[in-house]
Amino acid sequence: MFKSVLRVPVISSARPAIQKRAALFPTSVRLNSNKSINNDDEPIDLAKEVEKIESQQPVEIETPKQATKPEDPDELAQQWLSAIKDIRKQITTEGVSPVEKESKSKWFEKFGFEPTPEQIAKMESLEERPIPLKHDPVVEHFTNMIMKDGKKARAQRVMNNALYIVKLQLRKDPVEVLKEILDKMSPLMAIRTQKSRAAKSVVMPVPLTERQRHRTTFLWILEGAEKRRSPDFEVRLGEELIAAYEGKSSGYDKRLQIHKTAMLQRAYVKLR
């Protein structure tokens, strides 16, 4: 347990250098050292120093008092629950803002900027709107799949050029085209084999999340792109995306095959 009173010796003001060192580095003095600690010429009589310290009265430092804890565990639990309820209520009513309201006015004061009422109104209207994402998450996912050896800029260039070809050929928004391809081509299930105990493997259809579905489609598109003729990857990818949009990609056959197998093996679907 903590002691309520600590004995802190007050060292005399005669040797400020020693005081500082002692205060900063209490264990820095080597006991078996022949050298004196201070650089002064006078040798130190340790016995006298100890006498001085002992003669002085100890200074009392009060430790901060801890909040009283209820001894009953039920009461303690009740306190916790009420605190959690308060916080939840605060979050639901006021919301969590990374920048506090008070700090904005402080920032204006700091930079000597006085916003006009129009600017304040605009600022408040914009507060409700979410910060827009830098990249579309679907495009970002595909870019990350194209990336090799962590060369993201190169992957982004390939992706941009491929989408540019899509835009030029179809004269449509390429991101929307990509999303439409994903809707049409993505499989709903994946087929996985599992070994049963009776030395027999069971083919099992497994449902996929949206991200997993997209990933499978991207892999099929990349596989189809590799079979094309152009020496530039962006052209191969762009052509494959256009073919996929027009329903000519080999990915559709794969999707159909998976769905057929899943239907046949539907008895093994695990339902939780």
Partner: peptide, 26 residues
């Protein structure tokens, strides 16, 4: 490696400038 048959065998800049893509614009 499989035989590459489909698609245009051009580099990106050639593809963009030589495929007469400007005619598809309004």
């Amino acid at each position: 490696q499989s035989k590459k048959t489909s698609g245009v065998g051009k580099f990106f800049h050639e593809y963009v400038s030589e495929q007469k893509l400007d005619l598809k614009a309004d």
